[in-house]
Each structure stands twice: as structure tokens, then as C-alpha cells.
Amino acid sequence: MGFALFILLLLVAIGLLILTQAWPAMQEFGLSFLWTSSWNPVEGRESFGVLPIIYGTLVSAAIALLIAVPLGLGTALFLSENFIPLKIRTVLVFMVELLAAIPSVVYGLWGIFVLIPALRWFFDLFGIFFTGPSMLAASLVLSIMILPIITAISRDSLAALPPELRQGSYGLGATRWGTIFRVLVPAAISGIVGGVMLALGRAMGETMAVTMLIGNANTISLSLLDPSNTIASLLANQFAEARGIQVAALMYAAFVLVILTLIVNILADWIVRKLQAKY
């Protein structure tokens, strides 16, 4: 009880700290901070806006989800059903969970030294110029990073289903795939959605690997091959050298990120509740 209260206090304290530090920038730029695109820290001509960065944060997270959800759910199904012998499954489950243990910076390095050269070679085949650091590179690495979250949580919720459900469905003459898609996945959907939302939160807040791969350009470009930026990597890049109102602007951006993740979490909770009520 005491510890829970302590965590609550800690959360409030962090929120308050961000809010007080961001206050000067909030007064200076108001809500237009959210939809302007300039980011100019030069003294005397400061103007800050995070629209491209919010865009980058949301788009990179969305692409990562788009790749990781089908892959992660597929892996979870493969690992929770008896497609392969239990011994091999146990090893694979362990390896997927190991993916989550790789430090972010290692993912970043892998992106720089393996993924980007590979992508460059691939796009060269079609005569397309690929700079390297870009939305695509960052999103791909992000998708690998969130894959274990989706897989592990989906697998756990599938494995937690009572065996009677499976038997009931087979007993009615359902095929394996019929059982999976019409009984098992719907029954585990609240856990699966919860996992996806957790992964989305992680993708939006991921810093190191994204900073190393996204190119840190505060522009909106529809091409995924162009560099972009996310709130987390903006903070990581600029905080060390920021002074005065720029610190406040960065804190304001941090506050926006906190709000965004909060919205995602509330949304997740709402969806999970809604789905649970339905079944």
C-alpha cells in the first residue's frame, strides 16, 4: 500500500517537474507549438514547433506496428499451438524473449552496419537513391524491437486459454485453422490488444536506436526513405546543449510525448474493457 502510494507520488512529481520546466515555453508558444514546424534554437530568433516531430513519432510507431503485429501474432500462434515439438518450441520462445533483452544501442548499431547497407543494396537494384538514416530504417528496427512484446504477451494469453475451448472446437469438427481464428484468437483478443498497445507505447518512446537511425530532420516528408525525427530522439539529441527557452521547449515536447503515451494507454485500457465486456 505504502509502496503503491510512493509510485503514485513519484509519477506526480515527474509530471510536475516536466510541467514547471516546460512552463516558459508553454507561455511563449501556447498550443501553436503543436502545429508549427520551425525548430530554431539560435539566440534572439528562437521559434519552436513540434508538428513534424509528432508526425515522425506517430508514423514510425505506426509502421513498426504494421509490421510487428502480423509477425508477432503469427509467431505467438506458431509457438502456442502444437505445430512443432514442444522442445523446439521452448527454445524458440526463449529466443524471442531474448530479443527483448538486447540493448537499444545494439539495435542502433545493427541498423547502421547491417540494415542500412542491406537496404541501400536493395534500393540500388531499382536505381533508387537511399541516403541511409531514414524513417524506413528506424521503423524496421523499431518493429523488431517491439516484436518480442507482442509475441510474448499474445502467446501468454493464448496459452492461458482453457484447453476445453480447443477441445470443444475440435470436438465440433473444426479444423486447426478454424479453431485458431474463430475461437482462440477471439477468446484471447483482449490480451493480444493489450500487448499491441504496450508495444505501441514502447515504439513511441524508444530513444537510442531511433536516434541513431532516423536522421533527425525536423521536416515532414511523405517518403519513408527520407530522414525524420521523433520526440524521444529530439530530446536525446538536443538536451545536452540546450539553454534557456530551448530547454523549456524540449520539456514541452517531452510533455507532449507523455500525453501521447497516456492517451495510448487509456485507449488500450478502454479497448480491452470493451472487448472483455463483449465476450
Binding site: 482453457p162 476445453e164 475451448l165 477441445q167 470443444g168 472446437s169 475440435y170 470436438g171 465440433l172 469438427g173 473444426a174 479444423t175 475461437v183 477471439p186 477468446a187 465476450y279
Partner: peptide, 20 residues
């Protein structure tokens, strides 16, 4: 076996309705 189970249905010890 899928066809077999369509003709020979089974009922279990614990009621196991689907979450539908």
C-alpha cells in the same frame, strides 16, 4: 479426423461454451 468429429460429437465434464 475432422469429419469423424462432425459425426461423433463430444460433451465435456466442465461446460465449455465459447466466449461468444
Amino acid at each position: 479426423p475432422v469429419e469423424v468429429r462432425r459425426r461423433i460429437g463430444i460433451l465435456f465434464q466442465k461446460p465449455n461454451p465459447f466466449p461468444k
